[in-house]
Write a protein that binds this DNA or RNA. Structure first.
Length: 221
DNA sequence: GACCAGGCACATC
DNA sequence: GATGTGCATGGT
């Protein structure tokens, strides 16, 4: 079976089991980008509280966030952890949107993808995963977020090699699937969901929900 | 009390 | 190029 078929089959199986994931939960593109930074090495529960604090303080816009003194910004995002670090990163992100788009994130929707990606990388605190999450979930670009969850599920099902790197996995998926933002969005969200719901609880893959849907046998480590 | 969560930057070898 | 470490809170 071709890689494309296997990826599509995986997506179908996951969707049938878990349904639409409705990622990313946010009220604006900027809020998505803020969430992408806040969720670095952090569980989502704390991120949601931090975003709630920012919303209550009416700071979920690049200009308004940028004008916050770092200590005050830090206090607002404290529930998301590593708050000194993330306060600086959020400020850099706000600067990026202010300088590149006059503070209006949607203006970047038409910018050349590779240019935008390298510009995001240049922002301190924005690495490949955060950049791709912003590109996909905030800007609707056809980019696959090749995070650790995706790698774990895809490698255990032997769709990709176990030691594949971030960029290789991203391109792998992007070149073998239709370049459809909605597909990449749902697939990544579903991979995270199945990894959290099953892989984490059962590191040895017992009773994997995908076992009959992919190759008819239990995936290996 | 240990471990981990929707990473990244930096140092070191 | 690979590996280690700091960042730091909150849930399990």
């Amino acid at each position: 079976m071709s890689l494309r078929s296997r990826l599509l089959r995986l997506h179908t199986a996951l969707y049938a089991r878990y349904g639409p994931q409705d990622w990313w939960p946010a009220r604006s593109r900027f809020e998505v980008a803020v969430g992408a930074v806040l969720t670095q090495h952090t569980a989502w529960t704390g991120v949601a509280r931090a975003i709630g604090n920012l919303r209550a303080a009416r700071r979920l816009a690049p200009g308004r966030l940028r004008r916050l003194p770092l200590p005050r910004l830090g206090r607002l995002i404290r529930p998301a952890g590593t708050w000194r670090l993330k306060a600086r990163r959020l400020r850099a992100l706000a600067d990026f949107f202010l300088e590149r788009a006059g503070g209006r994130v949607e203006r970047l929707r038409g910018a050349p993808l590779e240019t935008l990606r390298s510009q995001l990388f240049a922002v301190r605190g924005i690495g490949p995963e955060t950049a791709d999450a912003i590109l996909l979930y905030a800007l609707g670009r056809p980019v696959f977020v090749a995070d650790a969850y995706a790698r774990r599920v895809l490698s255990r099902h032997r769709i990709v090699p176990a030691k594949i790197g971030y960029e290789a996995l991203r391109r792998h998926v992007e070149t073998h699937l239709p370049r459809d933002p909605a597909l990449f969005n749902e697939l990544h969200a579903l991979l995270v969901t199945v990894a959290k719901a099953h892989c984490r609880a059962r590191p040895r893959c017992e009773g994997c929900p995908l076992r009959f849907d992919l190759r008819g046998r239990r995936p290996r480590e």
